[in-house]
Simulated scan of single mutants.
Amino acid sequence: MRSWTLVVLLACLPMIATAESRHSIKVINDTRNRIVAFAIAPTGSSRWINVDFGDRPFDSQLAVMLEWHDDDVCLRDFRAMLSDGRMIVAQGFDVCRLHVYRPGFWFYNGRQGGMRLP
């Protein structure tokens, strides 16, 4: 299994100087498809921030480390668009307690979140 790590700094998230926290999460593509788009939002807000993976494809079995600074909100929604057109949305993911996100695991095992059509 080949792997690579890319650190993405999401500076466009709101920054609050008095209550700033550092969050990091490792996203492992455990689907059978390439992830063509990925976004993060505070849970229930619909304020999606797109993550740019650069010019490298985010193929199956690869991992990306995401890191950002913002307020102390732990619950996030994740949205992954796959190359076959499916969209996997995980709602209420606790980034303060959990530090690895596998979109395929959440989708195939019926975890919180699920497939949303484009």
Rank of each mutant, 00 (worst) to 15 (best):
S83H: 04
A80E: 01
R102K: 11
F78K: 14
L98I: 13
A39T: 11
D72L: 07
M87H: 09
L9E: 08
D70G: 04
L98A: 05
D70C: 10
I40S: 08
R116G: 08
I35R: 01
H69F: 09
H69E: 09
R97K: 05
E67S: 13
L9S: 12
P118E: 15
S60G: 03
E67G: 08
A63D: 13
R76D: 05
D77K: 01
Y108I: 12
W4I: 06
L117A: 06
G113Y: 01
E20S: 04
A90M: 13
V73N: 04
M15N: 10
I16V: 15
I28Y: 14
R56C: 02
I40R: 03
R34D: 07
R116H: 09
R2N: 09
W48T: 03
R116C: 09
R97Q: 03
M87N: 15
W106N: 08
M1Q: 11
G104Q: 12
M115C: 10
Y101R: 06
W106R: 12
F78E: 06
R34L: 09
Q91I: 03
R86W: 10
V51S: 01
E20R: 08
V7G: 02
Q112Y: 09
F53E: 15
Y108G: 09
S45P: 11
P118N: 12
I25K: 02
G110N: 01
W48R: 12
P14I: 01
V7W: 01
M115L: 10
W68L: 02
S60N: 06
K26G: 06
G44V: 03
A80V: 00
D77T: 11
F105M: 06
V100S: 00
D30K: 00
P57C: 04
R111T: 05
R97W: 01
L82D: 01
Y108S: 04
R111F: 03
L9I: 13
F105I: 02
Y101A: 14
R56P: 00
L75C: 07
V89H: 07
V51H: 01
L6E: 13
P57D: 11
R97Y: 01
T18N: 05
L10D: 00
C12T: 09
G54T: 02
N33F: 12
R32W: 12
G85W: 12
V27I: 03
S46W: 13
R102Y: 14
A17H: 11
F107A: 08
T5Y: 00
R116E: 15
R47S: 15
W4P: 11
T5E: 14
R47N: 10
R34F: 10
T18Q: 14
L9M: 13
Q112T: 03
R76N: 04
I49N: 15
Y108F: 13
L75Q: 03
G113C: 01
L13N: 07
P118S: 06
V51P: 00
R32H: 11
V27L: 00
L6G: 13
G85C: 14
G110C: 00
Q112C: 11
S21Y: 03
A11Q: 05
M115K: 14
R86K: 08
V51L: 06
N109V: 08
A17D: 15
A39D: 15
A41T: 01
R102Q: 14
D30A: 00
L82C: 02
V27P: 14
F38C: 08
D77N: 03
V95D: 08
A63T: 14
D71Q: 12
S60F: 03
N29G: 04
